[in-house]
Design a binder for these strands. Structure first.
Lengths: 143, 143
DNA sequence: TATTTATCCCCCACTTTTCCCCACAGTCTA
DNA sequence: TAGACTGTGGGGAAAAGTGGGGGATAAATA
């Protein structure tokens, strides 16, 4: 399970170090792809494959299915860590997530998310005030 | 499985390089055809044949079936890669997809899509805002 | 039928990108 | 304080993408 928050830099070549605590779980090969709030998702292979299976069940004749599949699959890249434990983020994803230098890598249970630091801070502070309302409707019963 | 996003140029002769990562999957001969959002679809032979079988199951007495089959089949061309790993896109498809120079080639699971770069950016940015909503309604249950 | 025009392929060469390796610096631990 | 680990930066080799030239084949015109 992925938990925690780490602050790393992405260099000019588009490389960023995966926190060493995550490498044990991820192994040496995994998948990164576009995430929904302009961040980057990092999935272990089997988790990613599970989602792909679900998406392949959707017909390409449906507009939303095409759009989301395109969004999710076109952003995906199979990743191998280099000897220093870094990943090479493809340009399109760097642009999409608006990564400049300072990045935040957070664990969210079954995946990692890579955010531009500024965007992350902004998102979190904008959410904090509403969190009470957000939580309100998540569950009907005691969890 | 096709994933990822690549930016290549189409030259004056109508040739465009297929990203080398895709060539392993596609092999040397495959099919390209008209795609739904004014892009070009690229299918491995057996995937294409599978779709054709499905389309042949539709009655030609239905207007929509005729229209879509005509759309999909008339655009199709059998393709062979040249020795440099490029395909020669037929003029009608170049016109249809509005390809000028900068193109985007994306993997969307079972096929590739070739887009004019500008058109692709436009489509993606128009989707990005809605992606949260689109995802919202794709599945009812946990995937 | 002969000549021209266009199209398609293949080959060569240049440029750019990607990947791999090495080296250094800061931090934590023993 | 020494050693190991983690994060950061850069250089060089290999691969991938791009563009143009030339020859073969096919279509078009006189």
């Amino acid at each position: 399970m992925f938990i925690g928050e780490f602050h790393h830099n992405i260099d000019d070549k588009g490389r960023i170090a995966i926190p060493s605590k995550y490498r044990d779980i991820l192994g040496n090969s995994f998948v990164i792809t576009r995430g929904i709030e302009h961040c980057i998702y990092v999935y272990p292979n089997d988790t990613f494959n599970h989602i792909v299976t679900k998406l392949e069940g959707l017909p390409f004749t449906k507009k939303d299915a095409r759009a989301f599949t395109r969004f999710f699959m076109s952003g995906a890249t199979a990743i191998e860590l280099d000897k220093q434990g870094r990943v090479n983020i493809p340009r399109p994803l760097i642009t999409y997530a608006n990564l400049s230098k300072k990045c935040v890598i957070v664990g969210t249970g079954d995946r990692l998310e890579i955010w531009d630091e500024e965007a992350f801070n902004e998102f979190m502070s904008s959410c904090n005030d509403e969190m009470s309302d957000i939580a309100e409707n998540l569950f009907e019963e005691k969890i």
